[in-house]
Nucleic acid binder design. Structure first.
Lengths: 185, 185
DNA sequence: CTTGTCTATGCAACGAGTTGCATAGAAGGA
DNA sequence: TCCTTCTATGCAACTCGTTGCATAGACAAG
């Protein structure tokens, strides 16, 4: 399991509450790792009792008080340990691929709308990534030594961009295939 | 949940036992959907009691008897229903992306070996896909009307190939970034 | 001759992840 | 004024998925 490690990374980048983490997972981080607030709260509790994170009560006006979490030494060590052990071939789950193969036993043309919806969703996501890239990684970076955090975040973002572009090309291919099958019946 | 639907598609393509399904999930299908034999057996039980699949006892010599499952009318209808309802933005989980961002708080250079291992794994997978493509989709196809099943399986395979190529390019990019960071310290 | 692998199915226990619900004050729109 | 949304945390119940183990005959390698 790596949700705890994803949380550690996110908290190292910037400490925050469970709620804030959930929002980050919805936005930036959620594009390569997602989790609901329930999961995050539960895991944070465990991480706290294991001494991986420290908590600090932050009173607020005009909104509920929050608990701000930050990474403790033990958590940093745990992350380091995880980083040094190999991980394996991520298990993939592409619902759409199952649907496409399933369409052979149903009406292939009925999938065209679905594929177009996905095309649109990936177009939006790509635009969002590109906007983020322009915003955060436009200039040549600060003078002097490169900031590893910034460089690595950019590398992950470039992966997201490459993924979306690949998906768009493939979805276009799939759409053409579905049209061809619909025409040739 | 769509494991049941993945099983339906696989059984429509070819009826088989739980064991055989598990092997298919390890091989071809498993590249875009994975499941262990336990999960498959449990889900098959439920699908059977729901009338989605039919079972047939097949005695064998020199090996244990098996139960061959095939899709029943109810299962076909269930699949059709699922195919017609929209599915949503697959939740992605890229352990490696978490590791890369985490490396900023540890030693980036220590990740180079890991990235190279993944590069090798994706290279192997790409070779496997390409071999499958040559084997199954080399010729111009049977004369006359195109076979939807064949066409759609090929479209999914092209997706796998595009994915692996994208991953290889990105991993190369990541490796270069890590080298750059390791040098500039 | 023993050990290991392959086929084939399954139970039990656990951990991961989802869904529904509850609370509660502040702010903004119909 | 009422309804919804946002912030913030959490419980309870459930389903999904993984891991370890068990059985058992056939066959191949050491």
């Amino acid at each position: 399991m790596a949700l705890e490690h994803a949380i550690l990374v996110s908290l190292l980048e910037k400490p925050g509450s469970g709620y804030e983490l959930a929002r980050r997972f919805e936005r930036s981080i959620g594009y390569f790792w997602n989790a609901t607030h329930q999961q995050i709260y539960r895991v944070l509790k465990r991480m706290e009792s294991d001494g991986w994170v420290d908590v600090r009560d932050v009173p607020q006006q005009a909104r509920p008080d929050k608990k701000e979490y930050s990474v403790a030494a033990v958590g940093r060590a745990a992350l380091s340990g995880w980083l040094h052990e190999p991980i394996e071939p991520e298990s993939v789950r592409h619902d759409l691929a199952v649907k496409i193969r399933g369409a052979a036993f149903d009406d292939p043309a009925a999938l065209i709308g679905e594929v177009e919806r996905h095309y649109q969703a990936h177009t939006d996501r790509l635009a969002h990534y590109l906007a983020g890239e322009r915003r955060d990684f436009a200039g040549p970076g600060a003078p002097g030594a490169p900031d590893p955090g910034r460089e690595l975040q950019h590398a992950v973002l470039r992966g997201g961009i490459a993924y979306e572009r690949m998906m768009l090309a493939w979805l276009d291919d799939v759409r053409a295939t579905l049209h061809r099958l619909a025409a040739g019946r």
